[in-house]
C-alpha cells in the first residue's frame, strides 16, 4: 500500500502541470483553485487501483480531472455558487491589439476559453492537446456526434472572433 502510494505521488508530481492548468482555466479564485486541485488528486487516488496502463497516464489524468471539474461545476450551478462567467464581448475582442504577438495570442486564447460553456471548454482543451473526437467522447462520457457538433460550433465562433479582430470589423 505504501509503495502504491509512493508510486501514485510520483505520478502526480510528474503530471501536476495538467491538473494545475485545468484548475486555473476553470477557477480564477486561488482558494477554489486549490480546493479543486485537492478534489482532483483525491479522485485520482480513488481511481488509481482501477487504472490500467493500457491508456496513457496523461489521458487518465485528463479524464478524471475534467470529469471531477465538470461534476463540481454542475453542482455549483445547481446551488447557484458558480463564479460569474467571464463574458467577453465582441467589442472587447476588437479592442485587442491587431498585430499578434505571443502575449496577445495568449491573452486572446485565455479570453476565448473563458467565454465557453464548461463542457465546451473541456472539448477545446482536449482538441488543443491533440485528442481525436472519439477519444474526447470516451473521456467526457458523451457521443462522438455531440463532440463533433460542439467542436465545429466552437471553431466557427473562434474563426469569427479572430476574423473580426484581424479586419478590425
Amino acid at each position: 500500500m505504501k509503495t502504491c502510494k509512493k508510486h501514485f505521488v510520483k505520478i502526480i508530481e510528474e503530471h501536476q502541470g495538467i491538473i494545475n492548468n485545468l484548475c486555473a482555466i476553470y477557477y480564477k479564485n486561488i482558494e477554489d483553485l486549490h480546493d479543486t486541485r485537492q478534489d482532483i488528486i483525491l479522485q485520482l487516488w480513488k481511481a488509481f487501483p482501477s487504472f490500467r496502463a493500457e491508456s496513457k497516464v496523461s489521458t487518465w489524468i485528463y479524464k478524471v480531472s475534467l470529469n471531477t471539474i465538470l461534476s463540481k461545476k454542475r453542482k455549483e450551478n445547481r446551488q447557484g455558487k458558480s463564479e460569474p462567467m467571464e463574458m467577453v464581448t465582441n467589442n472587447e475582442f476588437i479592442n485587442q491589439q491587431v498585430s499578434f504577438s505571443f502575449d496577445d495570442n495568449l491573452q486572446l486564447l485565455n479570453q476565448l476559453i473563458a467565454t465557453l460553456k464548461d463542457t465546451d471548454k473541456a472539448i477545446i482543451i482536449l482538441f488543443l492537446e491533440g485528442y481525436k473526437n472519439k477519444e474526447m467522447a470516451e473521456m467526457l462520457g458523451i457521443t462522438t456526434t455531440n463532440v463533433s457538433t460542439r467542436l465545429n460550433r466552437i471553431k466557427t465562433v473562434l474563426k469569427e472572433k479572430f476574423k473580426m479582430i484581424s479586419y478590425g470589423a
Partner: peptide, 25 residues
C-alpha cells in the same frame, strides 16, 4: 497551438510537492 503551450506554461505556477500530496491523502 503555440498560445495553448504558453497558457499551459503560465498556469503551472501553482506547484505542489510530494509531501503536500502525501499530506492530502
Amino acid at each position: 497551438k503555440s498560445a495553448w503551450e504558453m497558457l499551459k506554461l503560465q498556469n503551472t505556477q501553482h506547484h505542489i510537492n510530494g509531501e503536500q500530496i502525501f499530506a492530502m491523502l
